[in-house]
Design a protein around this nucleic acid. Sequence first.
DNA 1: ATGAAAGCGCTAACAC
DNA 2: GTGTTAGCGCTTTCAT
Lengths: 351, 351
Amino acid sequence: MPNGHDTIPAKRPLTLRDVSEASGVSEMTVSRVLRNRGDVSEATRNKVLEAARELGYVPNKIAGALASSRVNLVAVIIPSMSNMVFPEVMTGINEVLENTELQPVVGITNYKPEREEAVLYQMLSWRPSGVIIAGLEHTEAASAMMAAAGIPVVEIMDTDGDPIDSAVGISHRRAGRAMAQAIIDAGYKRIGFLGTKMPLDHRARKRFEGFTEVLAKNGLEIVDREFYSGGSALTKGREMTETILKRNEDEPLDFLYFSNDMIGAGGLLYCMEKGIDVPGQLGLAGFNGIEFLDGLPIKLATMDAMRLEIGRTAAEIIAKRVNDPQGAGETVTLTPELALGQTLKKVKKPL
Amino acid sequence: MPNGHDTIPAKRPLTLRDVSEASGVSEMTVSRVLRNRGDVSEATRNKVLEAARELGYVPNKIAGALASSRVNLVAVIIPSMSNMVFPEVMTGINEVLENTELQPVVGITNYKPEREEAVLYQMLSWRPSGVIIAGLEHTEAASAMMAAAGIPVVEIMDTDGDPIDSAVGISHRRAGRAMAQAIIDAGYKRIGFLGTKMPLDHRARKRFEGFTEVLAKNGLEIVDREFYSGGSALTKGREMTETILKRNEDEPLDFLYFSNDMIGAGGLLYCMEKGIDVPGQLGLAGFNGIEFLDGLPIKLATMDAMRLEIGRTAAEIIAKRVNDPQGAGETVTLTPELALGQTLKKVKKPL
DNA sequence: ATGAAAGCGCTAACAC
DNA sequence: GTGTTAGCGCTTTCAT
């Protein structure tokens, strides 16, 4: 032992039987005490608790789960942990699950379908009580596994599609449309798009589709676009903004639509530094409503992805269904508000 | 079924026996095939795989783990997921574990010792192959559990203390001392401190102690301090900076030391907005080296907490020890570099 | 190369 | 209120 923590070094991990012997109470009753189940007299209860504490017994959930075929785990499968959106979803999930027996277990897919399939397989092999998974697009095998698992499955973030069981999210197509409409209403015409180089980010794709759809209806097109991958989003936003503005100096752009707020913030900082008049000369908008935007000198127009709410609702659906396995799936579509901030001209909508 | 995913709805979850019956191969051999263990003829192997795929069989790890008393899980216990530092640690852990059989399972403590104890208990009850846990300070019960668990335990982030088994991190005391020295060397005298209101953030506390220690040795003291809790760190940094500067207008501060880079960035944005000459009139420094700083107009002086490296090293220690349970604990102290950025005057150190 | 039997540590179900 | 018995679905061990 490298230091002063004094403990009973356990060769063989302790079992219920050890507690049973130490307390002189049957294994079954020990089990009851440790799970607060069934009637146990105060006296034996204390004897057991005392013995367990004394020995430092930690129950073996593996054995418990096998015997009871109940596993209080919820598989949460998300693309990434590094872009601020999923940590917040997790917070929402945690908030709700903390008040239940359920415990989230997180798997990361890095936006790769085959990775998602593998992670899902791993997680399902622990026989969780439910699955919360980002997105509606999965490999065929993954969809089949979830459908066959016989547990509640909630697909989150997006509701533009066909859920396996339940879904909670926003319509990203609608989000793209709404932003396009706001930009058009404000009178901008020469619009640039800056986004991630991620063909597999279906939600970004749907927003883009909704966006261009409304532009088209109004006789407009995206004038230029710029993509990035990897690196610090703030830095990339700055660089991409410089690039796209320089490339269009002859016929300048009057609006930049960023596929996320982090690159949007980078763009905003760049504009402020260069003394570009925002929103007069150039309008800006992002997507996500990251809280961090509040700290910027001026607020970026954006649309909240309602991450916290999505996490909470998804967890609630799972919690409900665990106690009511017969329950049917449901789809909850949340409707985010457009936050105009200070980077979008406030122009009256033409009649 | 709410939609078009065609699957075999499984009433009773499939078992090895189902695959055995479907393939006409004994359960034991099926098990061998599915785990790639022992010699199995190519013919039976294919029969089994075919049957398993056909049925959509997902092995039950609960049963497997109980029978083999081997669980390929690594418990990762961290205070929070929302402040950018731990996601990066996770990335490092994942990178390494991806190349092994091991899988991380994350628990969040919210900086509460009693929560940490509870989470640890939960995790240990799954009999993981190892534990990675943030910090060296735990409740007595938590320390005892880890010491008695008979598995490798790596305490991360901090090495100023007494590890249970292994530790990987930096010396936060040294980090505080180094930053203080750099500030003093640059000639700043009237130093303010801005931090989190978190008595249980031992690492912040140690940095602070190291910091004031060096100031004291040089006949200096912190002139004023300001604390926050909750909210957007960027916003809070901005507000706190305003507050502390205003409060000391009579005898102005010439340096602000922020306990993390996010509030530091907020302070920096505030200064730029107000036209405060940084680093001439006022120097600034933070802590953590978050990549995001690169996107700011000028770079904040900071010290990298080496999160990625810590995560990787911790995971490596676990991976190594799982295959060598006799191995002894080890302590790895990483030494971060001070990044002066552009918010600290470059003044020659007085001879 | 394959199979049969025993049991991992716990809990459901049923006594008493 | 407490104890007994029989598994949960796998893997270990030992035969063959």
